[in-house]
Computed example of a mutant assay.
Amino acid sequence: MDILVIGGSRYFGKRLIALLRESGHRLTVLNRGSSPAPEGIEQLVADRDDENALASVLAGRSFDVVVDQVCYTPRQAEIARRVFATRTRRYVTTSTVEVYEYEDSAVPVAESALDLASVTVDTGLPWEDPEFLEAHYGEGKRQAEAVFAAAGSPFAWASVRVAHVLGGADDFTGRIGHYAGRIRAGEPIAVPVVNHPATYVYVEEIAAFLAWAVAADFTGPVNAHSHGPLTTADICAEIEKLVGGRSVFQEVEVGEVSPFSFARSYGMDNSRAVGLGYSFTDSAEWLARAVSETLGGQR
């Protein structure tokens, strides 16, 4: 297949590109030029927020599948719908568990919990402001999905709602390092009074899932995560084994809590993906390896 990957220059995106390449697909990468494409892969350079520039660089081009790793706002989604309307038959976006951030469910959250038809799309919000975008990450993804899901879609659209990702020496988030530093120093780790478990996925597994999704034919949203939710204590216990020390949890009723701590319960249900034929691993199989890889890469 002829595949265009938008973004994807680091972390699980670069692993996805490697997997697609190994499978023999013809790959093109589109980004703003800040990161080079892997050797031997064609690179197109354009700002995806500039519709004219994007259409110009894609003139005369079409693809079997477009994989959009960096669609964060409804504006970007609207541009993509127009520009790729006649340029692809399938469009796969990378979304996030954070589209469910307002849920608080006693059972794992299925895709149907979010009715995209009821999501209000507001392209007039200051999506170009990095601080606003960061503070409204889940909302931006929700609205982007709603744009793609709207009636009259020019292509078959699928969205992979990615769980919290762990693993890899190149984990750029600093979350595991944050915990390691506090555990070494015996400093308190702030958690909600009721701290819910969450769903996670190993970095190599989500890359493999996305590669599978590219070749599949399902449409609409699908949750992607390993079996077995994890708690803050589960993750910290693995860190303790590597760095020593002891986790000191401090319950807080208000204020900021540590990463991987959740006052709401919105762990996902991956039954749809399993029913479509994907076999996930269990988080217990890779958690220790994931933590070791990340801390090894930060030393």
Rank of each mutant, 00 (worst) to 15 (best):
M1L: 09
D2N: 14
G8I: 08
R15A: 08
R15D: 07
R15C: 08
A18Y: 04
E22Y: 09
H25S: 09
G33S: 11
S34P: 01
P38K: 11
E39A: 14
G40P: 07
I41P: 03
E42T: 04
E42H: 07
L44R: 10
A46Q: 03
E51A: 10
E51N: 07
L54A: 02
A55L: 08
V57M: 04
G60M: 03
S62R: 12
F63L: 03
D64A: 14
V66I: 14
V66G: 06
Q69I: 05
P74K: 01
P74H: 05
A77S: 00
E78S: 12
V83Y: 02
A85P: 09
T88Y: 03
T88L: 03
R89C: 07
Y91S: 12
T93I: 14
T94W: 10
S95G: 12
S95Y: 07
E98G: 06
V99S: 12
E103K: 10
E103C: 14
E103V: 13
D104I: 08
P108C: 08
A110T: 15
A110L: 06
E111Y: 09
S112F: 06
S112E: 15
V119L: 07
T123H: 01
L125T: 03
D129R: 11
E134Y: 14
E134K: 15
H136D: 03
H136A: 06
G138L: 02
K141H: 05
R142N: 08
A144T: 00
S153C: 08
P154N: 07
F155I: 10
G167R: 05
D170H: 08
G174S: 02
R175V: 02
I176Y: 01
G177R: 12
G177D: 13
Y179Q: 04
G181Y: 10
R184G: 01
G186R: 06
E187Q: 14
E187D: 13
A190I: 07
P192T: 13
P197A: 13
Y200C: 00
V201L: 15
V201N: 08
V203S: 09
E204V: 02
A207G: 10
F209P: 04
W212F: 12
V214K: 02
G220P: 05
P221E: 09
N223V: 00
A224F: 06
P229M: 05
L230H: 02
T231Q: 03
T232W: 00
A233H: 02
C236F: 05
E238V: 08
K241R: 10
K241T: 02
L242E: 01
R246M: 09
V252I: 10
E256Y: 11
S258E: 15
F260C: 00
A263S: 12
R264W: 04
R264G: 01
Y266I: 04
Y266N: 04
G267K: 05
R272Y: 11
R272I: 01
A273E: 05
A273V: 10
V274M: 08
A284H: 11
E285D: 15
W286G: 00
R289W: 15
S292R: 15
T294A: 02
L295T: 05
L295Y: 02
G296E: 11
G297W: 12
R299I: 12
R299T: 13
